[in-house]
Structure formats: C-alpha cells, structure tokens
Simulated assay, not measured.
Amino acid sequence: MSMDLKIELAKEEYVNAINEISNKYGLPLTIIEVLLNGILNEVANMKAINIAEEKAKIKESENNAKD
C-alpha cells in the first residue's frame, strides 16, 4: 500500500472518529476546534521529542563509531 493511500485512509478514519465524538457529545464546532488545536499541539510536541531522541541516538552512534 502506498504512503499516499495510507495517509488518505488514516485521514478518513480521523474525520470519522471526530464526527462520531462530536455527535456523541453534541459539542459545538467552536469547542471541537479548541480540542483539535490542543491535540495538534500535543502531536507537535511528541514529534519534537521523537526527533530530538532520534538525533541523540544518531550522535551517540557516531561518537561510538569514532571510539
């Protein structure tokens, strides 16, 4: 399965889940927007942590290769 198709299918699942949750709790779009912005910030933070950890591992392996 191509990455493009995976991304599109994942996006559809996210939208479906958001719609399901919105209907379940009867939340107005303004609140949904606030919640999604909070989730987006959390995802951005997790990505930054993952990148920092990966860079540290690369630097460590480079330092070990020098020794």
Rank of each mutant, 00 (worst) to 15 (best):
L29D: 15
L40A: 12
I51C: 02
A56D: 05
I58N: 02
T30R: 10
L5S: 14
A56N: 07
E13M: 05
K66E: 02
L29W: 11
P28R: 03
A17Q: 14
A44C: 01
Y25P: 01
K55T: 11
E54R: 13
L5R: 15
A10K: 05
K11Y: 06
S2L: 13
S22R: 09
K59D: 06
L35Q: 01
I7R: 15
L9G: 00
E60L: 08
L40I: 12
E62Y: 09
T30S: 13
I32M: 07
K47S: 06
V34C: 01
E62T: 05
A48E: 03
A56T: 07
Y14M: 12
I7D: 12
D67W: 09
L35N: 01
L5Y: 13
I32W: 01
K66T: 01
A56L: 08
T30C: 07
K55P: 01
K47W: 02
K11A: 13
A56F: 04
D4A: 15
I51E: 05
N64G: 00
A65D: 03
N37A: 12
L36V: 15
V15S: 08
L27S: 11
T30M: 09
K11H: 09
K66S: 01
V34I: 10
L9P: 00
I18Q: 11
L40C: 07
Y25M: 11
G26T: 10
K24I: 04
N19I: 04
I18D: 05
N45W: 02
N16E: 03
Y14P: 01
S2C: 15
N50R: 14
I31R: 11
S61G: 00
S22G: 09
K24H: 12
E62H: 10
A10M: 05
N63D: 10
A17V: 09
N23C: 10
N50L: 14
A10D: 02
N16V: 02
L27Y: 10
